[in-house]
Write a protein that binds this DNA or RNA. Sequence first.
DNA 1: GTTACTGCAAACTTTTTGCACGACA
DNA 2: TGTCGTGCAAAAAGTTTGCAGTAAC
Lengths: 154, 154
Amino acid sequence: MAVPIEEIERRLALIGGALRAAGLRVTQQRMEVARAVAASDAHPDVETVYRAARARIPAISLDTVYRTLAEFDRLGLVSQVHAATAGPSRYDANRDAHHHFVCRGCGLIQDLYGDSLDAVAPPEPERLPGRVERVEVRFQGLCDECMRKEQDDE
Amino acid sequence: MAVPIEEIERRLALIGGALRAAGLRVTQQRMEVARAVAASDAHPDVETVYRAARARIPAISLDTVYRTLAEFDRLGLVSQVHAATAGPSRYDANRDAHHHFVCRGCGLIQDLYGDSLDAVAPPEPERLPGRVERVEVRFQGLCDECMRKEQDDE
DNA sequence: GTTACTGCAAACTTTTTGCACGACA
DNA sequence: TGTCGTGCAAAAAGTTTGCAGTAAC
């Protein structure tokens, strides 16, 4: 919800370019879906992206949003992030190395940065069953607000 | 698929005890669902647990398996793990500190152990939006078999 | 002008829920 | 014996797909 304008523009340019490079069409719908994910750092779900895109293209359909986000994911332009609690798929347009704090109460997902986290490596790489492409550290817990709520219940 | 008998028994005892401690009934169905997750280290999905449980209680229903796994999750006896690729919920009865390698090709999830991973901590704990209860390092990539398959396609 | 993309509607998969019967404590 | 848990069936939620029209290149 507080991604700087320049960062949004940078992400949109990246996505537009990647579409062209992949031989795909740069449609209004795709760019508005791109804008909706790129403009949020709250890791929005499909429905939220849909609502944001519909504010600019009233006739856009939910299945286009699904298809578009799946396509972006395939191209590596966004990635799915899992909340601590089950629910609809959520997406992240932040392509910089980062990690997450996830709240098991309300579904909050917050980006975390740190060289020490980026540097985490498997203890015995030779015993891995494959090749690592990405490392994500997930800190799971309860956010301050949910902690307050849990105390009120007791 | 290769959890030692003693470890399975240990997990079953833990689950049975926790049910009693929570004032819940220790039913045949619950214990067979427990056995099915406890006996696998392949992070089975609901359907797989259902099939394993049905081999011992033919009349067990899928919704009981859903309800039971959700209950176990609430009690902290199992946890959901997310594969790299979307699909049905998968469960893990391994309560020891551990981490995961996940393959984006086939859905493989393999447990990893290492003190260096357990010790990973947030770089600026005071700036976290809440309290951390668990840390999981996820190595995402492609397993050996999927790497081979991807080469064959080119 | 082609062809890929979109919107619509319908289907599909996964998960949840209400209710009456049966089993655990 | 009382109550919790289960099975059944139906519904809800989330996601995918086929097709005909539309827009991008």
